[in-house]
Simulated assay, not measured.
Amino acid sequence: MSSPDGVTKHDEKYLVRAIRAEEWPAVRALRLQALRDPVAHLAFLETYEAAAAKPDSFWQERAIGAAEGAAGARQFIAEDPDGGWVGSVTVLVEEAGTIDWAGTPVERRQGHVVGVYVRPEHRGCGLTEVLFDEALRWAWEIGAERVRLIVHEDNGRAQRFYRRVGFLPSGVTVPLTADPEANELEYVLVRP
């Protein structure tokens, strides 16, 4: 269930909401934690070292844009009862007629899900689904025709989850520059 301000309760245990601009230190901390996950090399296109080296101004700008949604992004987090951040998902808006991060033309207004992370001790309880529900609700509200995500070909756990919540492989592959022998696979969900 979602309220008008984008806050969702999940089993009265978690609060899912959009981040606020002043929460940039928590945005940074959760991202760095995600990049230390054992499968981070399959899940993220960034290393811990690269992210940790970024100045505070980077994290401040990132949080401002993802809090307001005005910069073409919205980040949602899950809080535990003590206010600790235990999960996150971000939706980037890609406009028709632009070029995406991989150099491919964008044909329609779409959401692009990135930065999916739930702390290991909170996985398997349905929290990721609730994060996705909130992210997708926002994408549809802003007029996205579809939502896509890119997943490493060896990340079977993530692929199974994405299929379970309705995403399907589009057949598009994106070669990785860091590992020319590996690919990322595009999964899409068309507006209901």
Rank of each mutant, 00 (worst) to 15 (best):
A78T: 08
Q159G: 08
G143Y: 05
V130A: 15
A29H: 00
Q33A: 14
V39P: 00
R28Y: 04
V165N: 06
I142P: 08
E12R: 11
L15M: 07
N155S: 00
W24Q: 01
V165L: 09
F76R: 09
L42E: 10
R108C: 11
E95C: 07
Q33K: 13
V151Q: 11
L189S: 10
R137E: 09
D179Q: 06
E23K: 03
G115F: 00
F167M: 12
M1C: 07
G126R: 03
V86E: 09
R74D: 05
T177A: 14
G115P: 00
A73E: 11
F161R: 12
A34L: 09
R62I: 02
I19T: 09
H122V: 04
A66F: 07
H112R: 14
A102G: 03
S2E: 10
G166T: 04
P105I: 00
T173C: 12
M1S: 14
A21Y: 02
R28Q: 08
G111N: 07
V188P: 01
T177F: 06
T98Y: 03
F44Y: 11
T104D: 15
A135W: 11
A63K: 08
G6T: 01
Q159K: 13
D133Q: 12
G166D: 11
F167A: 03
F132E: 06
P105Q: 03
N183V: 02
V86L: 10
W85E: 02
D11H: 01
R157Y: 12
I99T: 14
L15Y: 00
V89I: 15
H41T: 13
Q110V: 03
V106L: 14
V93G: 03
F76N: 06
Q110R: 14
E46D: 09
V172T: 12
H112L: 14
H10S: 12
V190W: 13
A78W: 09
A63E: 09
V174F: 15
A66P: 00
Y162V: 04
P4G: 04
G65K: 13
A70I: 04
